[in-house]
């Protein structure tokens, strides 16, 4: 039965990947259908809760912990940082649409002038540089706190990643998709090996979460980190697990990966920042 299930998943997974030259829209539909058919009892929204949508015991502990969210102080700090003026008197709000409020759901976006993917974290740092401030380290620290605050202002807004119908944007999307399905590291895993092919199964005591909803709640406050980390910090964790070299924060590969993966969750509400173990 199990091996039959295995074979079935593999077949489904191949169907998810192999539609050569499928449009992003078609990819997204088969991607989301794969999970909703696999887990018919999980609502679209609940996929954003990752492993806690699958594992009731883990969920109970998590919910108890969230009575006093471990990230509250850091989130508040993020708000203060966001609202503190730069030396030149301007502030973050001046760099973003809508004063930076309720925009998380549009990131990452493709900049058709520069022909590259712009993540929220990159945009925050570019805002700093444009105003004569120095770059903050990506992945954690103040930048992650600011991004967490900005994410909190988008609570409930549906993820709305746009892939302009232009060669460069499609190429960025394809590169991210390619990264997701390619095996890497000494242990030879692809992201899809764990989060699609073996979703819901256990690797040792860890339940493997669905990739649908993976980006809806970042930055995440991980108990293991005792701080906020951006999505790309989480990519590092998964890369290290398979003994692959983590990439530079905001490297082109990571930005393209983030673009692909976030597009796959289009329509799901932003529900971050969140806590994870």
């Amino acid at each position: 039965m199990k091996s039959l299930l295995n074979t079935l998943t593999v077949v489904v997974m191949l169907a998810v990947v192999s539609i050569a030259n499928a449009t992003p829209e078609q990819d997204k539909e088969s991607f989301q259908r794969f999970y909703t058919e696999r887990f018919p009892d999980i609502t679209m929204e609940d996929f954003g809760n990752g492993v806690y949508a699958l594992d009731q015991d883990a969920r109970n502990q998590w919910e108890a912990m969230n009575d006093f969210p471990p990230y509250e102080d850091d989130l508040e700090k993020g708000g203060e940082l966001f609202n503190t003026a730069f030396a030149n008197g301007k502030n973050y709000a001046s760099c973003f649409e809508n004063g930076g409020g309720n925009i998380r759901q549009n990131y990452p976006m493709f900049d058709t002038k520069r022909n590259t993917v712009i993540t929220l974290e990159l945009a925050i740092n570019e805002c700093r540089v444009a105003n004569g401030e120095k770059l903050l380290p990506y992945k954690k620290g103040e930048l992650a706190k600011i991004a967490a605050y900005m994410t909190s202002t988008s609570e409930g807004s549906p993820i709305n990643i746009v892939i302009p119908n232009n060669g460069k944007a499609l190429a960025a999307y394809q590169a991210g998709k390619q990264y997701y399905y390619s095996k890497r590291g000494q242990l030879n895993f692809s992201c899809s090996n764990c989060h699609i092919q073996n979703v819901g199964r256990k690797a040792r005591s860890e339940t493997l979460s669905p990739a649908l909803g993976h980006t809806s709640h970042f930055p995440v406050y991980r108990m293991k980190w005792e701080s906020f980390g951006t999505l790309q910090r989480r990519f590092d964790s998964c890369n290290k697990q398979v003994r692959a070299e983590p990439l530079e924060g905001q490297s082109e590969d990571y930005r393209n990966l983030e673009y692909f993966l976030t597009y796959m969750s289009n329509g799901l509400p932003v529900n971050g920042p969140a806590s994870r173990k």
Partner: peptide, 13 residues
């Protein structure tokens, strides 16, 4: 081809 099991010999694990 898409086995998730690491190639213990080939990758010198």
């Amino acid at each position: 081809k898409i086995s998730i099991m690491p190639p213990f010999g080939k990758h010198k694990i």
